[in-house]
Write a protein that binds this DNA or RNA. Structure first.
Length: 783
RNA sequence: GGGCUCGUAGUCCAAUGGUAAGACAUCGCCUUCACACGGCGGAGACCGGAGUUCGAUUCUCCGCGGGCCCACCA
């Protein structure tokens, strides 16, 4: 074995071996002993950072452990290239927009970009040593996934779980496109705050006087003694003359303006809240490009209409106050345009009536860590609206639906035709409602969560050939981070339950985030991204995984280079121990001594503890135990038996090899490369297994438990530690010879071990006064 | 504002109803034939307050500070 380990060479060679040998291949031969994992598909947005390495490693610890426990592990991988981050990323890369390119062409661009990045992502995940079966790869914009998403829509509709309702959406009037909240930013803008007199007593301050024609109500705070007297009154809107009611609501800030506010459909998000809460009238005054409709202010643009209406109001004597203010408004981050709201019919999944059931389903899941369940329940309890699944965007999966031109009834695509694009394809049937064959296509696309919420079914190939449905669904595990319990976890539970009547997984594993060294999330904009590749090149993948293994499940962890360094040291130590064993190889003798049975018994105890922790998904506890035992083994047992080996006694070899095998098996889920290398060097032939990762996890009965040896060995170890300290206090080299030690007891067989370990010429029983702490033994040392 | 969570040596963190393990850094000793990417040893810590208890770092409450999610921000 080489003196120095070259982790780059090692990782390339071993990763290739795993792939060539299909070590992580899933065998689709029935549900027996299957462990299936609903891997999170990373978003394709051009970024891979240590946060990914952190959470994916944690799921991989579980996958590798289960594989060694004899499970047929179903561990797929997916790419999420269906969402807005991908869209924005591709738009930026090509300097274009989905609007400009059109849906078909843009999906083509995404496809090319995904293929490019998929290779990069794949190579990163491979080098981290994530043991997925790459033949189970999916991506969320693929034809197959489009088909599944559309099928889900059609089935839910037929179940009566979906409906359409008018809802405002955030809109960029400049680009004429719907926006997500992700695309908004705050901007401080100067604005004119004008106070308009509706009547003698009703004065309202607003920055949006042009929305006067869309005014549908006036709000005051019920605690506002001055203004609340007007509650219930009917007021005429200036210029337009329509009548609106004064309503009390706590969302009104009494200190702003006059304490009275007009609600228009729609000027801001509060207007939407009120509109929904009080079932107000809908008055649309603006088109999709931010122009007033022709009947209002002659179809002027918003800003011009504002000037126009202020002038008009002034002439009528309705302006009672006017001042410049600076306030924060939402703008489109790409072009800086102030957003508007556009009202459109949207699709909803109805689930508010299922709250109680959803709580119960959540309780059927095994939550790790347990407290994460509370977050889920709080979310479900706080739900106020059904789930809006349509988005007015171009890029994404289209709805498989057209509408009857005459009666607006939906015309669904045939399941056998999926996936369809209603903008290109034509419906096969006439309107079920009125028999008309004229139709208009749905232009909206699905919200990304409408697709992500199907990953267990996508993995099982539901709606396709369904070939994994029996063997992998419900899945054993959903690993994911805590920030999307309310999105991914919740929506998956909803949809999969509706489709299958079962919860989609047995357990969930909620990980934290890998943060930078200061505890900040890694973001491109923060400039604190560290790529896994960089760390792997410097320290190796095992070392990076070591860092990920140290933090408790669910906890965020800041990236500490020292933890990676200590991982590298551990790898080095494992390698050198293996070298030591290979140097002292040869035919082992069957006979053992107390010291051997001592370390073997200790190893068994540690093994049992580690196994128990792994079963509870407490990988960090398991890793700490395994690490601690390995260092203990090196510093004590290996040091204690050297005198025997050097003296030509081969009796420790058997134990040395057996215990070290346990050690590398406990480390295998965490440090797959070094353990594989050592296994192949030392144990492959003996065990008749080509990879440690499919070898058997040691169990009760494989190893010795000898309580007498355990007690005697512990005592000897403490005596040796005492003598070490004694030598140390006198600044004597640890291997320096001691002429005599007198002890209060006869160590029997262990006498030779103590003498050997500490280089003592004579060890005898006699009167001694220095007590060795933690034992009943007293000793006297004579230099 | 609400929910959850965290707050331990210079730094990062572990466990625990009876004052606390480890890693990095630091200091001292040891160049012993697997490993100086090593060994041995030293110094160094439980956010503040109240309560429960014989006893709290550990349990409860309050406060302060950090994180995540939600709500709010005419």
């Amino acid at each position: 074995m080489k003196e120095r380990l070259d982790h780059k060479e090692l990782e390339e060679r071993i990763a290739k071996f795993w792939e060539d040998e299909g070590i992580y291949s899933f065998r689709n031969d029935g549900p027996d002993k299957v462990y299936s994992i609903d891997t999170p598909p990373p978003t394709i947005s051009g970024l891979i950072h240590l946060g990914h390495a952190f959470s994916y490693s944690q799921a991989d610890f579980v996958a590798r452990y289960k594989r060694m426990r004899g499970y047929n592990v179903f561990y797929p991988f997916g790419f999420d290239n269906n969402g807005i981050p991908t869209e924005l990323f591709v738009e930026k890369t090509y300097g274009t927009t989905a609007e400009k390119e059109g849906r078909e062409k843009f999906i083509g661009l995404v496809g090319g970009e995904t293929a490019k990045f998929a290779e990069m992502y794949k190579s990163t995940w491979r080098s981290i040593g994530i043991s997925v079966d790459w033949s189970l790869l999916y991506n969320t914009i693929s034809e197959e996934v489009q088909k599944i998403t559309q099928l889900s829509f059609i089935k839910l509709y037929r179940m009566g779980r979906e409906y359409r309702m008018l809802l405002p959406t955030i809109w960029c009037p400049k680009e004429g496109t719907a926006l997500s909240q992700m695309e908004l930013k705050d901007k401080s803008l100067k604005s004119r705050f004008v106070t308009i007199s509706f009547s003698d007593q009703i004065k309202i301050a607003t920055t949006r006087p042009e929305l006067l024609p869309a005014c549908v109500a006036i709000f005051v705070n019920p605690d506002d003694t001055k203004n609340s007297v007007h509650v219930g009154k009917i007021v005429k809107v200036p210029i337009f003359g329509h009548e609106v009611k004064v309503i009390a609501d706590r969302r009104v800030d009494m200190s702003k303006g006059t304490g009275m506010v007009m609600c228009c459909t729609f000027g801001d998000l509060t207007d939407i809240e009120w509109y929904k809460a009080y079932g107000l009238e809908l008055k649309i005054v603006m088109d999709r490009h931010g122009k007033m409709l022709p009947e209002y202010f002659g179809g002027r643009k918003v800003r011009e209409a504002r000037e126009f209406v202020i002038e008009d109001l002034r002439k009528r004597g309705c302006i009672v106050d006017e001042k410049e203010i600076v306030h924060s408004v939402n703008v489109h981050e790409r072009c800086g345009t102030e957003i508007e709201f556009l009202v459109k019919k949207q699709w909803f999944v109805k689930y508010l009536d299922m709250k109680q059931k959803l709580i119960e389903l959540g309780r059927e899941l095994e939550w790790n860590p347990k407290y994460m369940q509370v977050r889920y329940e709080n979310w479900v309890n706080g739900l106020q609206w059904d789930w809006a699944i349509s988005r007015q965007r171009l890029y994404g999966i289209p709805f498989p639906v057209w509408y009857c031109k005459k009666c607006d009834a939906p015309i669904l695509a045939l399941e056998s035709d999926l996936p369809v694009n209603p903008m290109k394809d034509m419906p096969k049937s006439k309107c079920e409602n009125c028999g008309s064959s004229e139709y208009v296509p749905e232009e909206d696309i699905f919200d990304t969560w409408a697709t992500s919420s199907l990953t267990p079914l996508i993995n099982a190939r539901w709606g396709l050939d369904g070939k994994y449905m029996d063997s992998v669904y419900p899945m054993s595990l959903r690993p994911q981070a805590h920030d999307i319990i309310s999105f991914w976890l919740f929506t998956t539970l909803v949809k999969c339950y509706l489709h299958t009547g079962k919860i989609p997984w047995k357990s969930v594993l909620i990980s934290g985030h890998g943060l930078d060294s200061k505890g900040m999330p890694m973001h491109k904009s923060a400039g604190n991204i560290i790529e896994p590749r960089v760390v792997i090149e410097k320290y190796g993948a095992d070392s990076l995984r070591h860092w990920a293994s140290l933090s408790k499940l669910g906890d965020d962890a800041s990236f500490q280079e020292k933890d990676v360094t200590s991982g590298a040291r551990l790898v080095n130590k494992l390698w050198n121990t293996a070298r030591f064993i290979s140097m002292n190889d040869g035919k082992p003798e069957v006979k053992t001594r107390i010291m051997d049975r001592w370390i073997a018994s200790r190893a068994t105890a540690v093994m049992e503890k580690v196994t128990e922790m792994m079963e509870e998904y407490n990988y960090s506890g398991a890793k700490r135990e395994a690490d601690a035992f390995f260092w203990f083994f090196c510093d004590n047992y290996v040091e204690f038996i050297k005198y025997r080996l050097y003296g030509g006694d081969r009796s420790p070899i058997k134990t040395l090899r057996e215990v070290f095998l346990i050690i590398i098996k406990m480390q295998a889920p965490f440090m797959p490369y070094i353990t594989e290398e050592v296994y192949q060097e030392l144990y492959m032939k003996q065990e008749g297994c080509k990879s440690i990762h499919i070898s058997k996890w040691p169990g009760r009965g494989d190893m010795l438990v000898d309580p007498d040896a355990l007690a005697a060995g512990d005592e000897a170890q403490k005596v040796i530690a005492y003598i070490r300290q004694w030598k140390h206090d006198r600044k004597i080299a640890l291997n320096a010879e001691i002429s005599e030690v007198v002890a209060s007891k006869d160590f029997g067989e262990l006498e030779a071990d103590i003498r050997g370990a500490m280089n003592i010429r004579k060890l005898s029983k006699g009167h001694a006064t220095s007590k060795v702490e933690g034992t009943d033994v007293s000793i006297e040392i004579m230099q």
